[in-house]
């Protein structure tokens, strides 16, 4: 298994899992959130090409109200 964090929380995923597949595992439509891995933005159409590796820090963001 591969050890990553998702929004700071540790998570074990199968080796070779792509970011797109992780988003699907989180149960969210691809367009509902924006993603970054290790502080770098990963665009929606690039998620399928990113294979998660040991120690990767994944962050997901959603829209909210703001000032």
């Amino acid at each position: 298994m591969t050890g990553i964090t998702v929004n700071g929380e540790p998570r074990q995923v199968e080796p070779g899992l792509t970011l797109a597949a992780l988003v699907a595992q989180l149960g969210q439509p691809p367009q509902a959130l924006a993603t970054a891995v290790n502080g770098e933005f990963v665009p929606r159409d690039g998620r399928g090409g990113v294979q998660l590796r040991d120690g990767d820090a994944v962050f997901t963001f959603q829209p909210i109200t703001g000032g």
Binding site: V6, N7, G8, L26, T60
Partner: peptide, 10 residues
């Protein structure tokens, strides 16, 4: 508007 980092569960 803004962006919020999600909780682990989304």
């Amino acid at each position: 508007v803004g962006l919020k980092r999600q909780m682990a569960a989304g």
